[in-house]
């Protein structure tokens, strides 16, 4: 079994694990963690595709590898925005839940925000 096939299987399993965490864990921070694991599984699949594209003296196809670098940076900024939102939500409500308790309680503040 080559490293690439092994990495492909690992990537697929990571996607499954991340998906499970995203679906079942109620805590937003754990959902964010699961999203990151899901994402890294997807990146690994790019990695195996790059490895299978070894040609012309390169050990791997650089195009998908470059896409992964872009993807990692985007995933980080997504994590940062989500974590900051979550911390702010906690600061306001002392809770961290996505269930909108009473969305109709105070309607929006119009455009004067």
């Amino acid at each position: 079994m080559s490293a690439a096939i092994l990495a492909g299987l690992t990537g697929a399993a990571l996607v499954g694990l991340g998906l499970y965490g995203l679906l079942t864990d109620p805590h937003p921070l754990r959902k964010i963690l699961a999203f990151n694991i899901l994402g890294s599984g997807v990146f690994l699949l790019f990695g195996i595709i790059a490895r299978k594209g070894a040609a012309a003296g390169f050990a791997a196809d650089p195009v998908p590898q470059a896409m992964v670098i872009t993807g990692i940076v985007v995933a980080f900024s997504a994590t940062a925005l989500a974590v900051t939102l979550l911390l702010r939500l906690f600061q306001e409500t002392r809770r961290a839940t996505l269930e909108p308790d009473a969305p109709a309680k105070t309607p929006d503040a119009g455009v004067d925000g």
Partner: peptide, 20 residues
């Protein structure tokens, strides 16, 4: 943008769906 708790929860849920 106006920072009310229910908008924060809505935004976070939106973000998670969008990232997914």
């Amino acid at each position: 943008l106006d920072g009310r708790p229910e908008t924060l929860a809505a935004a976070l849920r939106y973000l998670l769906f969008a990232l997914f």
